[in-house]
Design a protein around this nucleic acid. Structure first.
Lengths: 213, 213
DNA sequence: CTCCTTAAATCTACGGTGTAGGTAATTCAG
DNA sequence: CTGAATTACCTACACCGTAGATTTAAGGAG
């Protein structure tokens, strides 16, 4: 174990991992995930594309980094609260963080992250569950069930069509009636409109009722 | 409204939408989603890349098509069964279909599909729910809650690390103990191992208990 | 039959991508 | 000073999705 040798990073350096991740998130917010490229990101930073590789391991690792930035925005719940409140607060915090950056959210929802930032919310849920007397295996099951619901809900919420205009609906509805899907046709008005907020509360309520009554 | 004119597709044509989608699914199964390219797919079919565009609208539409192929593999439930059995059978059928093609499953789980193939399972769930007296809005809420759980669970299940070998675990565990995440450390054995089957049944059970007791 | 419309398959070419490999400048530990 | 380390830049390569034009062949309309 020797001391570090050679040139350390200096303050005058143009780039830093943090600056790159921040600009990448802005790029995703503005133009969407598909529009992200190392070259475009470098252009925005006024820098040669290859310079990014001094701070980031490649495009995939860059996007992992952006995902972690999003995760880090989830507020830690107050430590003393009761079980249900804690889980509910975390779920709402998670949702709010994703909805703040809907176009980047798939990065979090799609990848399984192993970093410490990802583990911190896990700790915040697991702690109260264990303290409430849950056996560890049940606690993990419950945590994963809620997380699965959150991920699934947010995936729909996040890349939903911007607005479901009424135009053309009648034609589609006529198609439905004629297509041998009577239940779909009957519920079509409710299928067409998505009250994300209400559906989030509905599903979360079911799960929390079962886990933390 | 005149009769169709000109050359119709002939049997001797090398390509067909179905053949393309089948080969694309095989390619995804073998090499993963990231490895799919129009050129490689064409090579496998012994055909010029641009020929694919006569049968498919572009790469994105191609992947939509593959997703529909996956969806179409979900068996329709028996029409007479009771509500809980119907929903459970559909959930299990959905899961089985995804696990048959784990590398392609994200295509279904990530995109929101508007095709008829996607609507058919919806009908199969919505019908019994409405018949059981659910008001349409509650029925849609319940359907979406279950679907969200399925999607979230399968996303984790499908791109989980192949096997969580014991090697190196001790080092990571030591890291955890020292990192101020006591609950994570305590539950680490259960976090490390994923009994997907059991967790699927656990979460699905909670939701079905609430919706179809 | 001939003509005309249409679809399948091919070819070329363009602008974009991620990143390997190499170079010059700078800063420090020894 | 010497040498390792780090940043930023540049060039170059292989690959990508697909627009556009061209050739070939199959019917139906006349």
């Amino acid at each position: 174990m020797t001391t570090r040798r050679g040139r350390p990073p200096r303050d005058a350096d143009v780039l830093s991992r943090a600056r790159i991740l921040k600009e990448a998130l802005a790029l995703v917010d503005e133009e969407g995930l598909a529009a992200v490229s190392m070259r475009k990101l470098a252009r925005r930073l006024g820098v040669d594309p290859m310079s990014l590789y001094n701070h980031v391991d490649g495009k995939d690792a860059l996007l992992d980094g952006v995902a972690e930035v999003l995760l880090a925005a989830i507020p830690a719940p107050v430590p003393g609260g009761d079980l249900r409140e804690t889980m509910s607060a975390l779920a709402h915090g998670f949702r709010a963080a994703m909805l703040d950056h809907p176009r980047a959210a798939p990065l979090v929802l799609t990848r399984q992250l192993a970093s410490m930032t990802a583990l911190s919310p896990v700790e915040a849920v697991l702690g109260p569950l264990l303290a409430a007397g849950y056996p560890p295996d049940r606690a993990v099951h419950g945590l994963r069930a809620v997380l699965a619901f959150l991920i699934g809900t947010l995936m729909r919420e996040v890349d939903a069509a911007p607005t479901f205009s009424g135009t053309g609906d009648e034609g589609r509805l006529a198609d439905l009636s004629a297509s041998g899907l009577p239940a779909v046709a009957a519920a079509a008005p409710y299928l067409a409109v998505c009250d994300h907020e209400a559906e989030f509360e509905f599903g979360l309520g079911i799960l929390l009722d079962a886990l933390a009554p």
